[in-house]
């Protein structure tokens, strides 16, 4: 069974927000909400500053606190790609998952249920990439099976230094960010 993940090359991301627009269009995300977003982070001390631009979304964690705190099982790990998904019909809108997610990846849909990135699983099931990956003009985003040693995402992670967000949270994210360094 595949374990889908995403690898994003921060050295190529220009923050154009095409991924955000594509996601909103593809998934009919309501006004005022988004399932993915751009973060610009500046580090260092002047004049030695560096800037990283990241496209962020649900991290599809291997150890998902949102699933563990869901009282009805609406938030669950799907058989398809081991993705963290939400069954809106089971969601009571208690917001426990919103509070549990350290990435702020969820919001309450105006219809009352928790909502977030699905990795466009409806597209994956017909052999397409997630919308954000498909439209990225710099091809900084890569999608695939992290358990497949021959997949593009695995090869990228084996060849480049990478990081995940808030590793100290113990959530084991499946969205990896490549830095500009080659692996030693």
């Amino acid at each position: 069974m595949a374990r889908f993940g995403m690898v994003i090359d921060t050295s190529k991301c220009i923050g154009c927000m095409d991924c955000v627009a594509a996601c909103k269009t593809e998934n009919d995300v309501p006004d005022g909400f988004c399932r993915d977003w751009i973060v610009t982070e500046v580090t260092g001390v002047f004049p030695d500053l560096s800037m990283e631009i990241r496209s962020e979304r649900c991290n599809m964690c291997d150890n998902p606190p949102c699933v563990h705190c869901c009282p009805t099982g609406a938030s669950h790990v799907s058989d398809f790609g081991k993705l963290v998904q939400i069954n809106a019909d089971m969601c009571i809108g208690c917001k426990a998952c919103l509070a549990a997610c350290p990435y702020g990846a969820r919001y309450t849909h105006p219809d009352g249920y928790a909502d977030k990135c699905t990795f466009c699983d409806h597209r994956l099931k017909v052999g397409q990439d997630p919308a954000c990956v498909a439209v990225c003009p710099t091809h900084c985003m890569h999608f695939g099976d992290l358990d497949d040693p021959n997949s593009e995402v695995t090869e990228l992670l084996n060849s480049r230094e990478s990081k995940t967000l808030l590793p100290e949270a113990g959530t084991e994210p499946r969205v990896h960010f490549l830095t500009d360094k080659a692996k030693q």
Binding site: N87, C91, H109, D111, Y113, D115
Partner: peptide
């Protein structure tokens, strides 16, 4: 994805 939570 479209969805509908139970009308509580």
């Amino acid at each position: 994805m479209s969805g509908r939570s139970p009308d509580l």
